[in-house]
Design a binder for these strands. Structure first.
Length: 567
RNA sequence: GGUCCCGUGGCUUAGCCAGGAUAUAGCAUCGGGCUUCUAACCCGAGGGUCAAGGGUUCAAAUCCCUUCGGGAUCGCCA
């Protein structure tokens, strides 16, 4: 709804400015505490108009002509600012639309097909608290983009032939597989042991190299040993992802691009444009004209491919299947992803949009699967659910155990997802148990609680025979500040989705959801619903609570957080 | 050493790309509020040289340069 309002504001300001014989593309529109929207156009046009911004703002404001039926209300100038408020129709229309569109409200304004890759952690162990930052950013982006209207397919790119996997397959042949453990954890156990073994006996590295050569040549027994190792790890990883409400539509494997011939074909294409040279037996690409001092190795001296080589083929394939490609990658991929894009560009292929997130480290230093220095996501989820269970038990002791467990699961995941997604991806963080398990913050559970509260009011009203969703309503009765603020907050949902989708910033949704919950809670404290003065007022306030329930549920869904009806 | 990201009240953090109206929230601290729709809530208070210095501009948390601090990365790992 806000997007429509903003569009109208843009249009009337453009017309007003044009009518003064001026012209600008930058209206300087911004959300403001002084109005629903504010324009700084007078600053931009002052020199062109040879007039000071304050007087110009007044002239522009006077030249504004409002069309019939617009959503724009009061227009005032304060100094050089033009402040524009929405009118009553904006409020009323928002209420009607939310109830009509329900879960669809606030979205559906974009189109196109997007391939979104995220997580793609090496299948050499379980996801740790760093990996899930990738998963949560990626999954939230998927939800944002889908809500915006895109057709999004998510992919987990499975590395099933790198050095790490060769080590895992070797490790399994050496130490066996402990089937009593969750499979990804069992893989990590032997992987860590194998790495220690290789450090103690460096001559054994040749066994790894030969495995890698065999797999690339297509040796069936070796391929099977790799596949088995990968399948174990991926099975466990998928369980963890599912626990966090993270889903992938497909799991393309790196080896597929070797076997299809796509890798050798793309190497041929790069050679054909004359960018390659042989350096110490390895095939390298010169990207100096793209600003990369160092060349990029795409083939080892023993002829085997590297991650980058296979990734080039993967992106070529993706580019043929979507309008946009988006990759969520850790900060360690900054350089390599730049080189990847440059290489794709050089051979005339589409380039992906890269979302980089900075690392999560431990107080004692960076995490490492190889050295066994990491906190598994499963452990965090176990701890948080345990903590959440204690919280539910404290608040709802009379409820059955099943209820408490269910709420603990939802609240625990909600707390974890919210905590991670609320921080901008470009900030590096240090994992802290005390903070991770703190439920006192206004986070996921705060928003979930607001939703449950809305549900509860409706439920109670229904029990008392006071709630009839089909009853005609009159939104003009919503005149309290907290009511109007709540409606306006809900109206701006589309704008938040739009910004978040365009800038690929999932944290914007987290902030919005918290503000929405806050608006609802303020309304709840200030205005009686079931005990409203008269029937008409009760009906519209119940409808408003219903609207809040709908938008809170949508916001939570966009964050991948469950919206419980009771907690 | 080169390159990239980050540095905002005691702690966590928004805003920075597209410079402008008293810098955003949360946690913690202090004070107030449950006979009323779930208090996982609400209201209020204190607390900030926006790392430091310089520059551009009518105007800088935001743009440019330098320095400091933290993170990432610098060919045959991914």
């Amino acid at each position: 709804m806000f997007l429509e309002f903003k569009k109208q504001v843009t249009s009337i300001l453009r017309d007003a400015i044009a009518s003064l014989g001026l012209q600008t593309d930058d209206l300087g529109l911004e959300a403001s505490q002084h109005a629903d929207i504010a324009s700084k156009a007078a600053f931009r046009l002052a020199s062109q108009a040879r007039q000071n911004p304050k007087e110009l703002a007044e002239r522009i404001s006077e030249a504004i002509i409002l069309p019939e039926d617009s959503l724009i209300g009061k227009i005032t100038t304060v100094g050089p600012y033009i402040n524009i408020d929405a009118n009553r129709k904006y409020i009323d229309e928002t209420v009607f639309r939310i109830r009509q569109e329900e879960a669809g409200f606030g979205g559906g304004f974009c189109q196109g097909r997007i391939l979104l890759e995220h997580t793609s952690a090496n299948p050499n162990g379980p996801l740790h608290v760093g990996h899930i930052r990738n998963s949560i950013i990626g999954d939230t982006l998927m939800r944002v983009l889908r809500r915006a209207g895109y057709d999004v397919e998510t992919q987990y790119y499975v590395n099933d032939m790198g050095r790490q996997i060769a080590i895992v397959s070797w490790a399994l042949s050496l130490f066996g597989f402990d089937s009593s453990r969750k499979p990804d954890h069992a893989i990590a156990d032997v992987y860590i042991k194998a790495n220690a073994e290789l450090i103690a006996n460096p001559e054994k590295v040749s066994e790894i190299d030969s495995r890698m050569q065999l797999v690339e040549k297509g040796d069936e027994a070796t391929i099977k040993s790799f596949d088995d190792a990968v399948a174990f790890a991926i099975k466990g990883i998928r369980e963890t992802l599912q626990r966090m409400n993270v889903t992938h539509d497909s799991f393309p494997h790196e080896s597929g691009f070797i076997r299809s011939g796509a890798v050798s074909r793309i190497v041929g294409e790069i050679k054909a444009i004359g960018r390659t040279e042989i350096d110490n037996g390895a095939l390298v690409v010169d990207l100096s004209d793209y600003g990369f001092e160092k060349t990029l190795v795409i083939q080892r001296s023993d002829g085997t491919s590297l991650y980058t080589t296979r990734d080039l083929a993967y992106h070529e394939w993706k580019g043929e299947r979507a309008d946009r490609m988006i990759d969520v990658l850790g900060a360690d991929h900054k350089l390599i992803s730049g080189q990847l894009k440059a290489t794709l560009n050089a051979i005339g292929k589409r380039e992906p949009e890269i979302v980089i997130f900075e690392f999560v480290s431990l107080p004692e230093g960076s995490m490492s699967t190889r050295r066994g220095k990491f906190i598994p996501a499963d452990e965090l989820l176990d701890q948080i659910e345990k903590q959440a269970y204690a919280e539910v038990d404290k608040r709802r002791p009379e409820m059955p155990d099943e209820f408490k467990k269910e709420v603990a699961r939802n609240v625990g995941i909600g707390a974890v997802r919210y905590d991670i997604v609320k921080v901008s991806p470009e900030k590096s963080t240090v994992f802290n148990w005390k903070e991770a398990l703190d439920f006192e913050k206004q986070g996921g559970p705060f928003i979930q609680y607001s939703h449950a509260r809305a549900c509860n009011i409706l439920k109670k009203a229904e029990e008392e025979g006071l709630w009839d969703p089909s009853r005609p309503i009159d939104p003009s009765l919503l005149v309290e500040d907290t009511e109007v603020d709540l409606v306006k907050k809900m109206a701006s949902f589309d704008s938040v989705i739009d910004t978040s989708a365009r800038e690929l910033k999932p944290n914007a949704i987290a902030i919005y959801a918290r503000e929405l919950a806050e608006s609802f809670n303020q309304f709840y404290r200030f205005v009686p619903v079931i005990n409203a003065e008269d029937e008409e007022l009760r009906a519209i306030r119940l409808a408003l609570v219903d609207c809040a329930r709908i938008v809170l549920a949508s916001a939570l869904d966009t964050l991948g957080i469950a919206a419980p009806e009771s907690m």
